[in-house]
Design a protein around this nucleic acid. Structure first.
Lengths: 144, 144
DNA sequence: CCAATGTCAGCATAACTGACATCA
DNA sequence: CTGATGTCAGTTGTGCTGACATTG
């Protein structure tokens, strides 16, 4: 009853899922079965030089505790390592391991590949157009 | 490390969240606090004449059991009712109640309102453009 | 006999809140 | 002392799989 074929919100969700499924399926098939949706969300916000857990939580919009749990899972999987922050002994930095960096590089290639496929199917004009609208400043969510 | 400001997948997710938050917050404030994310997903796929639980599950991409659980919650909240399908006695139809229909009408108005705000902020060209790209046929997710 | 539907039960995952120790 | 950080514990919500009765 909400016109899911025309409603912009649902259209956006379906488009996101297209990318999300294409990325996660490829990662799983290529040798990183331990990377799921929550892992990818934290992983994406990781900084090459190391990032604090609380910072990852802020970027991902989740609690410090939830981020901590995901990071521990990634550590057990050998994708990240925790090192003490030299600037603050009460903090630790989450850094990708060699295997973690390889998975990130793979994900980046895969995302570009998906965008290329989309460009072949929709044409360059529509994809440029899509990107332009999404990169624009939408501003705060209207509260009224 | 995945360029979350440029990656199309993340851009799509953020855009979806803009609509999702704007819709759910308005519903909660307007007197439907029991409608959350899962409820809205089922609700959106509801048909005015009544829809089977298994059909809602297919449309929403979740299991029959998960859809069943959400529907029971909506029924307890008085937003939908379950009636026997006259065409198949082993099936039931999920239909919105009066209160349910009012909430759906409200949601529809709110979604249009959000799109109007977006059009004011980005201009009609970019929104038309966005809608065009999203309504196009993206095809199956590339498996390779 | 088989397929689809709705339902119940148990399990896994993932997020949250609360609490606490450490350190700037 | 206050605030930020990381961590542990408990709880809640949500979806899944398995299993079963009913119906076509």
């Amino acid at each position: 009853m909400l016109d899911t074929q025309q409603n912009l919100g649902f259209l956006l969700l379906n488009a996101f899922r297209w990318f999300d499924e294409g990325l996660l399926a490829a990662l799983n098939r290529a040798g990183w079965p331990e990377i799921g949706r929550p892992e990818s969300m934290v992983f994406a916000h990781l900084d090459a030089t190391g990032t604090r857990i609380s910072e990852l939580a802020r970027r991902g919009g989740v609690s410090r505790q939830a981020a901590h749990q995901v990071v521990q899972g990634l550590r057990r999987a050998g994708l990240v390592e925790l090192v003490s922050d030299p600037a603050n002994r009460s903090a630790k930095l989450v850094r990708p391991t060699g295997r973690g960096e390889r998975s990130i590089a793979f994900a980046r290639r895969r995302l570009l590949e998906l965008e290329t496929v989309l460009t072949e199917r929709l044409g360059p004009d529509q994809v440029t157009c899509l990107r332009g609208a999404l990169e624009a400043e939408w501003g705060a969510v209207p509260s009224a």
